[in-house]
Design a protein around this nucleic acid. Structure first.
Lengths: 200, 200
DNA sequence: GTCTATACCCGGATAGAC
DNA sequence: GTCTATCCGGGTATAGAC
Protein backbone atom coordinates (compact mmCIF):
# COMPACT_ATOMS: atom_id res chain seq x y z
CA UNK A 1 0.00 0.00 0.00
CA UNK A 2 1.45 3.29 -1.16
CA UNK A 3 0.99 6.30 1.07
CA UNK A 4 0.86 9.78 -0.37
CA UNK A 5 3.77 11.98 0.67
CA UNK A 6 2.58 14.45 3.28
CA UNK A 7 3.16 18.17 3.51
CA UNK A 8 5.17 19.45 6.43
CA UNK A 9 2.20 20.79 8.41
CA UNK A 10 0.47 17.51 7.78
CA UNK A 11 3.41 15.52 9.09
CA UNK A 12 3.62 17.75 12.12
CA UNK A 13 -0.03 17.21 12.96
CA UNK A 14 0.18 13.47 12.49
CA UNK A 15 3.30 13.26 14.60
CA UNK A 16 1.65 15.27 17.32
CA UNK A 17 -1.34 12.93 17.26
CA UNK A 18 0.96 9.95 17.67
CA UNK A 19 2.89 11.46 20.54
CA UNK A 20 -0.15 12.86 22.30
CA UNK A 21 -1.65 9.41 22.20
CA UNK A 22 1.45 7.77 23.56
CA UNK A 23 2.76 10.31 26.03
CA UNK A 24 0.01 12.86 26.61
CA UNK A 25 0.32 16.61 26.40
CA UNK A 26 2.74 17.22 29.25
CA UNK A 27 4.91 14.37 28.06
CA UNK A 28 5.17 15.64 24.49
CA UNK A 29 7.79 18.24 23.61
CA UNK A 30 8.05 20.35 20.47
CA UNK A 31 11.45 18.87 19.86
CA UNK A 32 10.10 15.34 19.95
CA UNK A 33 7.38 16.31 17.51
CA UNK A 34 9.88 17.85 15.10
CA UNK A 35 12.11 14.82 15.17
CA UNK A 36 9.19 12.45 14.68
CA UNK A 37 7.96 14.56 11.77
CA UNK A 38 11.39 15.08 10.27
CA UNK A 39 10.85 18.83 10.39
CA UNK A 40 13.09 21.57 11.70
CA UNK A 41 12.49 23.98 14.54
CA UNK A 42 11.85 26.97 12.29
CA UNK A 43 9.55 24.94 10.13
CA UNK A 44 7.30 24.03 12.96
CA UNK A 45 7.07 27.57 14.29
CA UNK A 46 6.38 28.82 10.79
CA UNK A 47 3.24 26.71 10.45
CA UNK A 48 2.05 26.79 14.04
CA UNK A 49 2.26 29.39 16.75
CA UNK A 50 3.50 26.89 19.31
CA UNK A 51 2.80 23.68 21.13
CA UNK A 52 -0.79 24.46 22.15
CA UNK A 53 -1.70 25.46 18.62
CA UNK A 54 -0.32 22.28 17.18
CA UNK A 55 -1.90 20.20 19.89
CA UNK A 56 -5.25 21.77 19.18
CA UNK A 57 -5.06 20.81 15.52
CA UNK A 58 -4.03 17.29 16.46
CA UNK A 59 -6.71 16.84 19.10
CA UNK A 60 -9.43 18.14 16.80
CA UNK A 61 -8.47 15.70 14.11
CA UNK A 62 -8.27 12.78 16.52
CA UNK A 63 -11.67 13.66 17.92
CA UNK A 64 -13.19 13.87 14.48
CA UNK A 65 -11.73 10.55 13.50
CA UNK A 66 -13.01 8.89 16.63
CA UNK A 67 -16.52 10.06 15.85
CA UNK A 68 -16.31 8.74 12.34
CA UNK A 69 -15.05 5.37 13.54
CA UNK A 70 -17.81 5.09 16.11
CA UNK A 71 -20.49 6.21 13.69
CA UNK A 72 -19.41 3.60 11.19
CA UNK A 73 -20.40 0.93 13.68
CA UNK A 74 -23.29 2.64 15.44
CA UNK A 75 -24.98 3.77 12.25
CA UNK A 76 -26.05 0.24 11.34
CA UNK A 77 -29.66 -0.84 11.12
CA UNK A 78 -29.98 -3.88 13.36
CA UNK A 79 -31.55 -4.09 16.83
CA UNK A 80 -30.18 -1.82 19.54
CA UNK A 81 -28.39 -4.56 21.47
CA UNK A 82 -26.62 -5.76 18.34
CA UNK A 83 -25.38 -2.30 17.45
CA UNK A 84 -24.12 -1.67 20.95
CA UNK A 85 -22.47 -5.04 20.95
CA UNK A 86 -20.82 -4.29 17.63
CA UNK A 87 -19.53 -1.03 19.03
CA UNK A 88 -18.14 -2.67 22.14
CA UNK A 89 -16.54 -5.53 20.26
CA UNK A 90 -15.03 -3.53 17.44
CA UNK A 91 -11.30 -3.84 17.01
CA UNK A 92 -9.25 -1.47 19.08
CA UNK A 93 -5.65 -0.76 19.80
CA UNK A 94 -6.50 -1.52 23.41
CA UNK A 95 -3.07 -1.22 24.99
CA UNK A 96 -2.56 2.26 23.60
CA UNK A 97 -5.66 3.47 25.35
CA UNK A 98 -8.23 5.92 24.02
CA UNK A 99 -6.54 8.82 22.25
CA UNK A 100 -9.34 11.13 23.33
CA UNK A 101 -10.13 9.82 26.80
CA UNK A 102 -6.52 9.80 27.96
CA UNK A 103 -6.39 13.56 27.49
CA UNK A 104 -8.80 14.00 30.39
CA UNK A 105 -5.99 13.00 32.73
CA UNK A 106 -3.75 15.73 31.34
CA UNK A 107 -3.90 18.73 33.66
CA UNK A 108 -2.86 21.18 30.94
CA UNK A 109 -5.54 19.93 28.57
CA UNK A 110 -8.25 20.12 31.21
CA UNK A 111 -7.09 23.59 32.21
CA UNK A 112 -7.47 24.92 28.67
CA UNK A 113 -11.00 25.53 27.39
CA UNK A 114 -9.82 25.26 23.82
CA UNK A 115 -7.98 21.99 24.22
CA UNK A 116 -10.68 20.47 26.36
CA UNK A 117 -13.56 21.34 24.05
CA UNK A 118 -12.98 18.65 21.40
CA UNK A 119 -12.58 16.05 24.15
CA UNK A 120 -15.79 17.00 25.88
CA UNK A 121 -17.59 17.33 22.55
CA UNK A 122 -16.59 13.88 21.39
CA UNK A 123 -17.41 12.07 24.59
CA UNK A 124 -20.73 13.90 24.87
CA UNK A 125 -21.58 13.07 21.30
CA UNK A 126 -20.76 9.41 21.84
CA UNK A 127 -22.88 9.21 24.95
CA UNK A 128 -25.81 10.90 23.26
CA UNK A 129 -25.48 8.70 20.20
CA UNK A 130 -25.58 5.60 22.36
CA UNK A 131 -28.43 7.01 24.41
CA UNK A 132 -30.47 7.37 21.24
CA UNK A 133 -29.87 3.75 20.38
CA UNK A 134 -30.79 2.57 23.85
CA UNK A 135 -33.88 4.73 23.67
CA UNK A 136 -34.81 3.05 20.42
CA UNK A 137 -34.32 -0.32 22.01
CA UNK A 138 -36.63 0.62 24.84
CA UNK A 139 -39.22 1.99 22.43
CA UNK A 140 -39.09 -1.21 20.41
CA UNK A 141 -39.60 -3.24 23.52
CA UNK A 142 -36.16 -4.75 23.11
CA UNK A 143 -35.02 -3.48 26.50
CA UNK A 144 -37.11 -3.41 29.65
CA UNK A 145 -39.07 -0.21 30.03
CA UNK A 146 -37.97 2.29 32.64
CA UNK A 147 -34.29 2.26 31.76
CA UNK A 148 -32.77 5.72 31.73
CA UNK A 149 -31.15 5.67 28.31
CA UNK A 150 -28.70 8.43 29.11
CA UNK A 151 -27.46 6.67 32.20
CA UNK A 152 -27.11 3.38 30.38
CA UNK A 153 -25.18 5.16 27.65
CA UNK A 154 -22.92 6.73 30.26
CA UNK A 155 -22.23 3.32 31.72
CA UNK A 156 -21.34 1.99 28.27
CA UNK A 157 -18.90 4.78 27.53
CA UNK A 158 -17.43 4.52 31.01
CA UNK A 159 -16.91 0.78 30.66
CA UNK A 160 -14.94 1.31 27.48
CA UNK A 161 -12.83 4.09 28.96
CA UNK A 162 -12.25 2.11 32.12
CA UNK A 163 -11.55 -1.00 30.09
CA UNK A 164 -8.52 0.74 28.66
CA UNK A 165 -7.33 1.49 32.19
CA UNK A 166 -7.66 -2.15 33.19
CA UNK A 167 -5.91 -3.34 30.06
CA UNK A 168 -2.96 -1.00 30.51
CA UNK A 169 -2.74 -1.94 34.15
CA UNK A 170 -2.72 -5.64 33.35
CA UNK A 171 -0.59 -5.22 30.26
CA UNK A 172 -3.14 -7.22 28.32
CA UNK A 173 -6.14 -6.50 26.10
CA UNK A 174 -7.94 -9.40 27.79
CA UNK A 175 -8.74 -7.16 30.74
CA UNK A 176 -10.61 -4.81 28.41
CA UNK A 177 -12.49 -7.70 26.89
CA UNK A 178 -13.53 -9.02 30.27
CA UNK A 179 -15.10 -5.70 31.23
CA UNK A 180 -16.92 -5.48 27.92
CA UNK A 181 -18.26 -9.00 28.23
CA UNK A 182 -19.41 -8.23 31.74
CA UNK A 183 -21.29 -5.19 30.53
CA UNK A 184 -22.83 -7.11 27.64
CA UNK A 185 -24.03 -9.78 30.06
CA UNK A 186 -25.74 -7.14 32.17
CA UNK A 187 -27.16 -5.47 29.10
CA UNK A 188 -28.47 -8.87 28.07
CA UNK A 189 -30.22 -9.18 31.42
CA UNK A 190 -31.99 -5.91 30.72
CA UNK A 191 -33.57 -7.21 27.54
CA UNK A 192 -37.29 -7.79 27.64
CA UNK A 193 -38.50 -11.35 27.89
CA UNK A 194 -40.76 -10.80 24.92
CA UNK A 195 -39.41 -8.16 22.59
CA UNK A 196 -41.89 -6.64 20.20
CA UNK A 197 -40.94 -7.74 16.70
CA UNK A 198 -39.68 -4.99 14.43
CA UNK A 199 -42.21 -3.34 12.19
CA UNK A 200 -42.00 -4.20 8.49
CA UNK B 1 -8.35 19.11 64.14
CA UNK B 2 -4.67 19.15 64.98
CA UNK B 3 -2.33 17.35 62.62
CA UNK B 4 0.90 15.87 63.86
CA UNK B 5 3.98 17.53 62.46
CA UNK B 6 5.51 15.33 59.79
CA UNK B 7 9.10 14.32 59.31
CA UNK B 8 10.82 15.47 56.16
CA UNK B 9 10.67 12.11 54.36
CA UNK B 10 7.03 11.91 55.33
CA UNK B 11 6.30 15.34 53.91
CA UNK B 12 8.14 14.45 50.73
CA UNK B 13 6.10 11.31 50.23
CA UNK B 14 2.82 13.06 50.92
CA UNK B 15 3.71 15.88 48.55
CA UNK B 16 4.63 13.41 45.87
CA UNK B 17 1.30 11.65 46.32
CA UNK B 18 -0.52 14.94 45.89
CA UNK B 19 1.39 15.94 42.79
CA UNK B 20 1.27 12.49 41.22
CA UNK B 21 -2.48 12.55 41.63
CA UNK B 22 -2.83 15.97 40.10
CA UNK B 23 -0.20 15.98 37.38
CA UNK B 24 0.94 12.40 36.91
CA UNK B 25 4.50 11.14 36.88
CA UNK B 26 5.79 12.94 33.81
CA UNK B 27 4.19 16.16 34.97
CA UNK B 28 5.76 16.06 38.42
CA UNK B 29 9.27 17.43 38.94
CA UNK B 30 11.56 16.96 41.91
CA UNK B 31 11.67 20.71 42.30
CA UNK B 32 7.89 20.93 42.53
CA UNK B 33 7.88 18.19 45.14
CA UNK B 34 10.51 19.96 47.22
CA UNK B 35 8.64 23.23 47.15
CA UNK B 36 5.34 21.58 48.02
CA UNK B 37 7.03 19.75 50.90
CA UNK B 38 9.01 22.73 52.06
CA UNK B 39 12.21 20.71 51.78
CA UNK B 40 15.50 21.55 50.15
CA UNK B 41 17.18 19.87 47.21
CA UNK B 42 19.84 18.19 49.30
CA UNK B 43 17.26 17.03 51.78
CA UNK B 44 15.28 15.19 49.20
CA UNK B 45 18.30 13.46 47.69
CA UNK B 46 19.47 12.50 51.13
CA UNK B 47 16.31 10.53 51.89
CA UNK B 48 15.56 9.22 48.41
CA UNK B 49 17.78 8.21 45.55
CA UNK B 50 15.77 10.21 43.02
CA UNK B 51 12.40 10.80 41.48
CA UNK B 52 11.57 7.15 40.73
CA UNK B 53 12.43 6.09 44.27
CA UNK B 54 10.22 8.75 45.78
CA UNK B 55 7.42 8.01 43.33
CA UNK B 56 7.57 4.34 44.24
CA UNK B 57 7.08 5.12 47.92
CA UNK B 58 4.22 7.47 47.08
CA UNK B 59 2.49 5.06 44.73
CA UNK B 60 2.77 2.19 47.17
CA UNK B 61 1.17 4.21 49.90
CA UNK B 62 -1.61 5.47 47.67
CA UNK B 63 -2.33 1.94 46.51
CA UNK B 64 -2.43 0.66 50.05
CA UNK B 65 -4.78 3.40 51.09
CA UNK B 66 -7.10 2.76 48.18
CA UNK B 67 -7.40 -0.85 49.16
CA UNK B 68 -8.20 0.08 52.74
CA UNK B 69 -10.85 2.55 51.65
CA UNK B 70 -12.47 0.02 49.34
CA UNK B 71 -12.32 -2.74 51.89
CA UNK B 72 -14.04 -0.54 54.46
CA UNK B 73 -17.09 -0.46 52.20
CA UNK B 74 -16.88 -3.89 50.61
CA UNK B 75 -16.26 -5.72 53.87
CA UNK B 76 -19.84 -5.18 55.06
CA UNK B 77 -22.27 -7.99 55.68
CA UNK B 78 -25.37 -7.13 53.63
CA UNK B 79 -26.49 -8.68 50.34
CA UNK B 80 -24.13 -8.50 47.39
CA UNK B 81 -26.04 -5.86 45.49
CA UNK B 82 -26.14 -3.57 48.50
CA UNK B 83 -22.40 -3.86 49.09
CA UNK B 84 -21.62 -3.17 45.46
CA UNK B 85 -24.01 -0.25 45.50
CA UNK B 86 -22.36 1.10 48.63
CA UNK B 87 -18.99 0.83 46.93
CA UNK B 88 -20.19 2.61 43.81
CA UNK B 89 -21.95 5.35 45.70
CA UNK B 90 -19.28 6.05 48.26
CA UNK B 91 -17.99 9.60 48.40
CA UNK B 92 -15.20 10.36 46.00
CA UNK B 93 -13.15 13.28 44.93
CA UNK B 94 -14.50 12.63 41.47
CA UNK B 95 -12.96 15.51 39.57
CA UNK B 96 -9.48 14.62 40.72
CA UNK B 97 -9.79 11.20 39.18
CA UNK B 98 -8.50 7.93 40.58
CA UNK B 99 -5.02 8.37 42.04
CA UNK B 100 -4.15 4.82 41.07
CA UNK B 101 -5.98 4.44 37.77
CA UNK B 102 -4.61 7.67 36.30
CA UNK B 103 -1.11 6.26 36.55
CA UNK B 104 -1.93 3.71 33.86
CA UNK B 105 -1.89 6.54 31.33
CA UNK B 106 1.60 7.53 32.35
CA UNK B 107 4.08 6.03 29.91
CA UNK B 108 6.97 6.11 32.37
CA UNK B 109 4.94 4.32 35.03
CA UNK B 110 3.78 1.64 32.63
CA UNK B 111 7.31 1.21 31.34
CA UNK B 112 8.68 0.50 34.81
CA UNK B 113 7.90 -2.88 36.35
CA UNK B 114 8.47 -1.50 39.82
CA UNK B 115 6.20 1.49 39.44
CA UNK B 116 3.51 -0.44 37.64
CA UNK B 117 3.35 -3.30 40.14
CA UNK B 118 1.37 -1.49 42.88
CA UNK B 119 -1.08 -0.21 40.26
CA UNK B 120 -1.69 -3.62 38.77
CA UNK B 121 -1.83 -5.20 42.20
CA UNK B 122 -4.45 -2.80 43.46
CA UNK B 123 -6.71 -2.98 40.45
CA UNK B 124 -6.43 -6.76 40.36
CA UNK B 125 -7.21 -7.00 44.04
CA UNK B 126 -10.26 -4.77 43.64
CA UNK B 127 -11.61 -6.78 40.74
CA UNK B 128 -11.10 -10.04 42.58
CA UNK B 129 -12.69 -8.67 45.73
CA UNK B 130 -15.75 -7.59 43.77
CA UNK B 131 -15.81 -10.88 41.89
CA UNK B 132 -16.04 -12.70 45.21
CA UNK B 133 -19.01 -10.60 46.21
CA UNK B 134 -20.77 -11.15 42.91
CA UNK B 135 -20.05 -14.84 43.24
CA UNK B 136 -21.67 -14.80 46.65
CA UNK B 137 -24.69 -13.05 45.21
CA UNK B 138 -25.02 -15.71 42.55
CA UNK B 139 -24.61 -18.49 45.10
CA UNK B 140 -27.28 -16.94 47.30
CA UNK B 141 -29.63 -16.72 44.35
CA UNK B 142 -29.55 -12.95 44.56
CA UNK B 143 -28.23 -12.63 41.01
CA UNK B 144 -29.31 -14.74 38.07
CA UNK B 145 -27.25 -17.87 37.65
CA UNK B 146 -24.76 -18.04 34.83
CA UNK B 147 -23.18 -14.65 35.38
CA UNK B 148 -19.42 -14.69 35.10
CA UNK B 149 -18.49 -13.01 38.35
CA UNK B 150 -15.06 -11.99 37.18
CA UNK B 151 -16.41 -10.30 34.09
CA UNK B 152 -19.10 -8.51 36.06
CA UNK B 153 -16.46 -7.34 38.50
CA UNK B 154 -14.33 -6.08 35.62
CA UNK B 155 -17.28 -4.11 34.30
CA UNK B 156 -17.81 -2.57 37.73
CA UNK B 157 -14.22 -1.47 38.10
CA UNK B 158 -14.16 -0.22 34.51
CA UNK B 159 -17.30 1.82 35.03
CA UNK B 160 -15.74 3.56 37.99
CA UNK B 161 -12.48 4.24 36.17
CA UNK B 162 -14.33 5.42 33.10
CA UNK B 163 -16.68 7.46 35.22
CA UNK B 164 -13.72 9.56 36.27
CA UNK B 165 -12.88 10.14 32.63
CA UNK B 166 -16.42 11.29 31.87
CA UNK B 167 -16.51 13.55 34.89
CA UNK B 168 -13.21 15.23 34.07
CA UNK B 169 -14.29 15.62 30.47
CA UNK B 170 -17.58 17.21 31.47
CA UNK B 171 -16.04 19.14 34.33
CA UNK B 172 -18.74 17.78 36.59
CA UNK B 173 -19.12 14.88 39.03
CA UNK B 174 -22.63 14.35 37.67
CA UNK B 175 -21.19 12.52 34.68
CA UNK B 176 -19.61 10.00 37.03
CA UNK B 177 -22.88 9.56 38.88
CA UNK B 178 -24.80 8.97 35.67
CA UNK B 179 -22.49 6.12 34.67
CA UNK B 180 -22.75 4.57 38.10
CA UNK B 181 -26.53 4.79 38.12
CA UNK B 182 -26.62 3.23 34.67
CA UNK B 183 -24.53 0.32 35.87
CA UNK B 184 -26.64 -0.10 38.99
CA UNK B 185 -29.76 -0.23 36.85
CA UNK B 186 -28.23 -3.00 34.75
CA UNK B 187 -27.05 -4.80 37.84
CA UNK B 188 -30.59 -4.52 39.14
CA UNK B 189 -31.87 -6.18 36.00
CA UNK B 190 -29.58 -9.11 36.67
CA UNK B 191 -31.12 -9.82 40.03
CA UNK B 192 -33.20 -12.95 40.30
CA UNK B 193 -36.95 -12.55 40.38
CA UNK B 194 -37.15 -14.66 43.53
CA UNK B 195 -33.95 -14.40 45.57
CA UNK B 196 -33.40 -17.17 48.04
CA UNK B 197 -33.65 -15.74 51.55
CA UNK B 198 -30.43 -15.70 53.55
CA UNK B 199 -29.79 -18.62 55.85
CA UNK B 200 -30.06 -17.99 59.63
C1' DG C 1 20.37 16.01 57.76
C1' DT C 2 20.25 20.14 55.29
C1' DC C 3 22.20 23.87 52.46
C1' DT C 4 24.39 25.98 48.42
C1' DA C 5 26.91 25.50 44.18
C1' DT C 6 27.43 23.54 40.00
C1' DA C 7 26.50 20.83 35.87
C1' DC C 8 24.28 19.57 31.75
C1' DC C 9 20.71 18.82 28.87
C1' DC C 10 15.77 19.75 27.68
C1' DG C 11 11.51 22.66 27.05
C1' DG C 12 9.60 26.23 24.64
C1' DA C 13 10.24 29.94 21.99
C1' DT C 14 12.22 34.19 19.18
C1' DA C 15 15.40 36.32 15.58
C1' DG C 16 17.17 36.73 11.54
C1' DA C 17 19.79 34.55 7.60
C1' DC C 18 19.07 31.98 3.40
C1' DG D 1 9.37 27.76 3.96
C1' DT D 2 13.31 26.14 6.20
C1' DC D 3 17.73 26.63 8.69
C1' DT D 4 20.83 27.98 12.41
C1' DA D 5 21.74 30.78 16.37
C1' DT D 6 20.45 32.23 20.63
C1' DC D 7 17.79 32.81 24.93
C1' DC D 8 16.09 31.76 29.49
C1' DG D 9 14.29 28.90 32.70
C1' DG D 10 13.35 24.11 34.31
C1' DG D 11 14.39 19.03 34.99
C1' DT D 12 17.28 15.95 37.34
C1' DA D 13 21.00 15.17 39.53
C1' DT D 14 26.03 15.33 41.91
C1' DA D 15 29.57 17.57 45.08
C1' DG D 16 30.93 19.28 48.95
C1' DA D 17 30.38 22.66 52.85
C1' DC D 18 28.10 23.24 57.26
Amino acid sequence: MYTLPMSTPERLIESTRELLWERGYVGTSPKAIQQHAGAGQGSMYHHFTGKPDLALAAIRRTAEQMRATAEAVLGGTGPAYARIEAYLLRERDVLRGCPVGRLTMDPDVIASDELRAPVTGTLDWLRDRLAGIVEEGVAQGEFTAGLDSREIASAIVATVQGGYVLARSAGSPAAFDAAVRGLLALLGAARSAAPRTTTS
